[in-house]
Design a protein around this nucleic acid. Structure first.
Lengths: 226, 226
DNA sequence: CTAACATGTAAAAACAGGTAAAAGAAAGCG
DNA sequence: CGCTTTCTTTTACCTGTTTTTACATGTTAG
């Protein structure tokens, strides 16, 4: 589970974002002032820190400097506006990225992912797949369409994952059945077809109006590559 | 020669699969318990490891962890059934794929090939073709004529794709049938002819009034090169 | 020239796939 | 436990695709 240290003195906003991040599958610890933040950052292990620039006791830049001195943890700065000065200062001191507040939780999550992807190359089976508007995070078993979390059943997720691993090429129903359902395909088994049908309804359409899952008649299905 | 480390405590099954893999041209080394597996994996160099989850001495997950710590070798897990828990655990620890047992040797080979293909450069099957006014994008399963998307059935697309791969040369009906329909041509089988007929109607004509698909009498068909 | 064969294509028949809905299985809950 | 809810599989019907059939036309060998 990815651990996030969220540092912001705006309690309401902080709680809201923490909640969103939790839903997204992150484990969130909050700190509302600079000293607490530094203390947490050095005492425990986090995968990333989200750091507001304006803070009581120690400001963002100071927190950044202290933490950077002892840890390689990625740090994402939150600045009040598109403030260039803060930004340059932050990057100068070793922040990994910065986001202008206010930002949507979705945007925040996207940025977090980008940083984590950069900083820790993942083993293949776990790596996120991005196929057009579709993103799969097998490690958290979450699927997104246009950054919106999809509400998929377990089987649907597995099915999509197998298709994603072979994106751009056809996968036979035989293989889908054995991979996804753990049994080989029998004569009148329509299960895969039905799951595909349900998946298609949950996924959106491509800009050209086709479904991202194409039928390869007599063979199986194919997820269209980006 | 591709070297495979096959790890399974079922001696009979293991021997059988080893034999099949050998016939397929792989060099197989067997291990029947976790410790031996780890020892082999770290001492020698293999292209891929097939790893059963249930093992004496060290279980699959432990082997996986130890090996992953020191090697980037692809690992294919064999799980008892389509068990999500094993699966997630496996992928979490860095397995590249998993197969539900029991599986046919053929399936196993297919999976091995898929993994090895993934870790190697892109196959050419995904590349776009451009032949005169005709453009094919296999990864998106779209065909264009003069930048207009063609409305082709799945079989028509496949047929066109095979012709495109051999553009400028004749392709026998025999080969078309086996590539496109997945069966060998029988005495009175006119399927390919009919599909060609339909394709010709959907494609336009060349500037000289000929169809881009030419008949090579007594042999098959040919897509005219640009 | 004619018989045997190969191809083009319209139309009929057979089949695979889409999907709503019923039935069955598994998981959550008092 | 039994009840409810959710997920998966089966069933059934419908649609569109593929294959077969049938016949017209063209080609080749003798």
């Amino acid at each position: 589970m990815t651990r996030v240290l969220l540092v912001d003195d705006d309690l309401d906003l902080c709680a809201m974002q923490a909640e969103y991040l939790t839903i997204e599958g992150y484990e969130v610890v909050q700190a509302h002032d600079g000293e607490t933040a530094v203390h947490h950052a050095l005492a425990e292990s986090f995968d990333i820190m989200l750091l507001d620039v304006m803070l009581p006791k120690l400001n963002g830049a100071e927190v950044l400097r202290k933490v950077r001195g002892n840890s390689m943890m990625p740090i994402l700065m939150l600045t009040a506006k598109g403030d260039d000065i803060d930004r340059i200062l932050g990057l100068e001191l070793g922040a990994d990225d910065y986001v202008a507040k206010p930002c949507t939780p979705r945007e925040l999550v996207a940025r977090i992912r980008a940083i984590l992807r950069r900083s820790q190359p993942q083993p293949q089976g776990l790596a996120d797949h991005q196929i057009g508007a579709l993103r799969l995070a097998p490690s958290r078993r979450l699927a997104y369409w246009d950054e919106q979390v999809l509400d998929l059943t377990s089987t649907e997720f597995n099915l999509l994952e197998v298709l994603a691993r072979h994106a751009g090429r056809a996968v036979s129903k035989e293989e889908l059945s054995s991979q996804v359902l753990g049994r080989s395909l029998t004569r009148y088994d329509r299960s895969i077809d039905v799951h595909i049908s349900n998946l298609r309804q949950k996924l959106g359409m491509l800009s050209d109006g086709r479904s991202p899952i194409q039928t390869i008649r007599g063979l199986g299905y194919q997820l269209l590559a980006a």
